[in-house]
Computed example of a mutant assay.
Amino acid sequence: MDVLLANPRGFCAGVNMAIDTLDRALELCGAPIYVYHEIVHNKYVVGRFRGKGVVFVDDVDEVPHGATLLYSAHGVSPKIREVSRQRSLRTIDATCPLVTKVHLEAIRFAKENYTIVLIGHEGHDEVVGTLGEAPESIVLVENVDDVAKLEVADESKIAYLTQTTLSIDDAERIIRALRERFPLIVGPSKDDICYATQNRQEAVKQIAPEADVVLVLGSQNSSNSQRLREIAEAEGKRAYLVDGASEIEPSWFGAKDVVMITAGASAPEEKVQECVDYLAELFGASVHNRVVRDEHVTFPLPKDLRILSQDEVAAESAP
């Protein structure tokens, strides 16, 4: 068996920032720390933090007054921020800067009286947060059929935004349908779909044609991981989304198959290596690294955490 190990894969800059932020917050504040929704959509990452005393909540009312609450990488709505203030919570915002960009675009378009078409998946944490920025101005579209049903008050004042973790091909189809129906529609100055999502999808498109089977490491509730599996299937390959080697079925493979392995942006590298080791032990697989694009993006820790760190240093140095 040959294993084609895709690069880039796994953690993106936003996920790294969010995880580092929560680790540092635990060092500074101690447990328990509360997180609104999962810090990232990966069950192993979430499980590791639960073991350290992190409490994940879906309602801010579950957080005790005055406690520390961290906003996940997917972002939150203004309503959540307001409820946090009312409960006197010490908040740390680990929203990915690329998600924040979409929020700011929504605010700008709403102030300019545009109807905003948000292309995304209903109920996804990121979409819920973006919708909350301008609920009276935003309408959600999930597919091309939704475009045909759209009704807007002024077709000369319509804009579109996208969830950052969509399939590029699906988003382009929907945007094309929007432009055909609303020729005056405007979009963001720069694509909303994040660099990591695009790079990982590009790697699957380039490498999957050489493979018999594609393994995608990631959790079932990870949008960008699901898109990687779908893209591999669109290439005519057997594709499986798994959290780790324990979910792999040997019957998926032939002894001399070529297997591509990649990972969604919230999947830990240790789980990738676990699967590589599993295939090496079971099928004597040899590994070949395939680099499609280099990534050098990093995001600084959030300002809230930097201020918290400075306060901690000041307190330790006080007489």
Results as ranks from 00 to 15, higher is better:
A239N: 10
A239D: 10
A239W: 09
Y240S: 01
Y240V: 05
L241E: 10
L241T: 09
L241Q: 09
V242Q: 01
V242N: 02
V242L: 13
V242R: 02
D243M: 12
D243E: 15
G244F: 05
G244C: 11
G244P: 06
A245G: 03
A245W: 03
E247I: 09
E247N: 11
E247Q: 15
E247P: 09
I248A: 00
I248C: 01
E249P: 00
E249R: 06
E249Y: 00
E249L: 02
P250R: 10
P250T: 05
P250K: 11
P250I: 06
S251P: 00
S251H: 00
W252Q: 01
W252N: 01
F253T: 00
F253Q: 00
F253A: 00
F253K: 00
G254N: 09
G254L: 03
G254W: 00
A255W: 11
A255M: 12
K256V: 09
D257L: 01
V258K: 15
V258E: 05
V258A: 10
V258G: 04
V259P: 02
V259T: 13
M260P: 06
M260E: 06
I261M: 02
I261Y: 02
I261L: 10
T262H: 11
T262R: 08
A263P: 11
A263G: 12
A263K: 12
A263Y: 11
A263V: 12
A263D: 09
G264T: 13
A265V: 11
A265E: 11
A265W: 11
S266L: 10
S266N: 05
S266R: 07
A267T: 09
A267E: 10
A267R: 09
P268K: 11
P268G: 09
E269I: 13
E269C: 09
E270C: 14
E270G: 05
E270P: 04
K271F: 14
K271Q: 15
V272D: 02
V272N: 01
V272W: 02
V272A: 02
Q273W: 14
Q273F: 13
Q273G: 03
C275Y: 02
C275F: 02
C275A: 14
C275D: 03
C275K: 01
C275I: 02
Y278E: 04
Y278T: 03
Y278C: 07
Y278M: 12
Y278P: 04
Y278D: 05
Y278K: 06
L279H: 03
L279C: 02
L279M: 08
A280T: 13
A280R: 15
E281Y: 08
E281I: 07
L282W: 05
F283N: 10
F283I: 10
F283Q: 10
F283M: 13
G284V: 04
G284N: 03
G284Y: 06
A285H: 07
A285I: 05
S286Q: 15
V287I: 14
V287C: 06
V287A: 08
V287D: 07
H288F: 14
H288E: 14
H288V: 15
H288G: 08
H288L: 14
H288S: 14
H288N: 14
H288A: 13
